[in-house]
């Protein structure tokens, strides 16, 4: 089952070298030391190389400008590269809806949407979220009007302490956009990355089903005094 190293197809140039055809180090060195070499490369190669070298200039470790598009609004912050998206949202943008509960990608309370896809904001650098549309829980209700899912979460009691609720709403919002009539199993699979210590899962699943126009019946049986007196 072993293969010989290197027996696959030869690597394509673009993966290894700068667009100029030189390795990054060689290119930078040549620019710095020999105008002749640079001239020999031709203006186009030099400008490509420069553009790449420029793009590959490390930033930080001090604070650098980071522009985030949050709930449709562009905001620029000065952040160290090590600042997480969650820290930026909660600490800098003043959006405390996404919660910090584990800070290790294990609970889902910090979930936000990145271009519509649920991610753990605690485990992504803010600087990495530049250029993406970030949606937080604050961006779900429009003009104070709850979304159908949010309404269902309230009506079906899909929450207890509510600390996991923003994350649950984000994940389910993404699910319902992709899959407007999810089965119970699909809902459970979608919220597998979100923990709720109060144990509201049955009602959260019910809320997601109700929001998609499906039956979300209660499992509660209420037995009146009369009936159980007889029993």
């Amino acid at each position: 089952m072993k293969r010989n190293p290197g027996d696959a197809a030869a690597p394509s140039g673009s993966e290894v070298f700068l667009a100029s055809g030189l390795s990054r180090r060689t290119f930078l060195k040549s620019l710095g030391t020999s105008a002749v070499t640079a001239a020999a490369m031709g203006a186009e190669q030099v400008s490509q190389g420069l553009a790449q070298a420029n793009a590959e200039r490390p930033v930080g470790p001090g604070a650098v400008p980071v522009t985030l598009t949050v709930n449709g609004e562009k905001k620029t912050f000065r952040l160290e590269p090590r600042v997480t998206l969650l820290e930026a949202l909660r600490g800098e943008a003043g959006l405390t809806g996404a919660k910090e509960a584990c800070d290790r990608a294990t609970c889902g309370a910090c979930t936000v949407l990145l271009d519509g896809t649920p991610v753990y904001a605690c485990s992504m650098l803010a600087i990495e979220a530049q250029g993406a549309e970030i949606t937080t829980i604050e961006g779900i209700a429009k003009n104070g009007e709850l979304s159908a899912l949010q309404k269902a979460m309230v009506d079906k009691d899909g929450l207890q302490c509510g600390y996991c609720s923003p994350g649950m709403v984000m994940v389910l919002t993404a699910l319902l956009r992709k899959n407007p009539r999810p089965t119970e199993a699909e809902v459970r699979h979608a919220i597998a990355g979100n923990l709720c210590r109060c144990g509201s899962y049955p009602r959260i699943v019910a809320a997601a089903r109700a929001a998609s126009g499906q039956s979300a019946g209660t499992k509660l049986t209420f037995i009146s005094s009369h009936d159980h007196a007889v029993a």
Binding site: E15, V16, S23, R24, Q52, E56, R57, L125, E128
Partner: peptide, 26 residues
């Protein structure tokens, strides 16, 4: 987290060069 700088590699060749300065691929 310790403080670190951040760079986006444009090619695989430069990525492996950039990472040599006590770096990690992200």
């Amino acid at each position: 987290m310790n403080a670190f700088s951040y760079v986006t590699a444009q090619t695989a060749g430069s990525a492996v060069e950039l990472v040599r300065e006590r770096g990690r691929f992200l």
